[in-house]
Design a protein around this nucleic acid. Sequence first.
DNA 1: TAACTGTACTATCATACATAGTACACCATG
DNA 2: CATGGTGTACTATGTATGATAGTACAGTTA
Lengths: 125, 125
Amino acid sequence: MFELDMRSRKPIYEQLVDKMKELIMNELLKTDEQLPSVRQLATELSINPNTIQKAYRELETQGFIYSVKGKGSFVNPNQKAIDKEKIVEMKKELEKLILEALYLGIPAQELISLIQDLDASKGGA
Amino acid sequence: MFELDMRSRKPIYEQLVDKMKELIMNELLKTDEQLPSVRQLATELSINPNTIQKAYRELETQGFIYSVKGKGSFVNPNQKAIDKEKIVEMKKELEKLILEALYLGIPAQELISLIQDLDASKGGA
DNA sequence: TAACTGTACTATCATACATAGTACACCATG
DNA sequence: CATGGTGTACTATGTATGATAGTACAGTTA
């Protein structure tokens, strides 16, 4: 369910956060559905429970999940608060990366096709 | 000439490498043109000479520049060897980021427009 | 009570990046 | 030749971040 890239510059906990957000926004994890427990997921992924907890804490801060002591962590029903700040940040990152890609010689049309493909697969899956 | 983001996850030397490659590929630095010296650029950017040298070494390894002891570093006339590996890597990164953006709710059309704008400004500048 | 949840610490290790300092080889200029 | 510029190499140190290890405590559920 979670494919981690241990060599990535992006830390594990952050990869987890992003994956979770995708699953939630794509409704593969539905409202009030229970997430795997900190220890269980840690065992499953062969990483430290602290790393999982760090991801969960971040997800809770961002309003994607809520956690209850003794019970577990669950998908938050109200995630309308997907912060605009994050979107702005994302656009900046994308702009940088796209510019690099163009300078690297990747044709604009190829990038556009990539977006269209991803968009289609996202909606149609 | 070089805008460094000290807060970025991308290390300084790597930012330098990328900037240089852009300048070279965009022909803002022309064939056999001399680059700033290691110490000079270090002073100018207020960073350590070793960091500059690391960037230059990397650029030389990748075939973008060549260095001559006692003389300086220069733009390589033959940079046809723009590695495909880097392009593949770039595409993967882009794919991840675009997917995140789409899930964040940024419309595909907006991303496409972004690419087109960047592509136009790149060619027309 | 027992076994599971989340949560909160401290300590330690590993890695990558950047800096500091020194040293040497080479070239150009006076 | 002497000086000061170039690239290059090396060790040591500082720093920040990520990840792990271990322990402990609070709450829930059976």
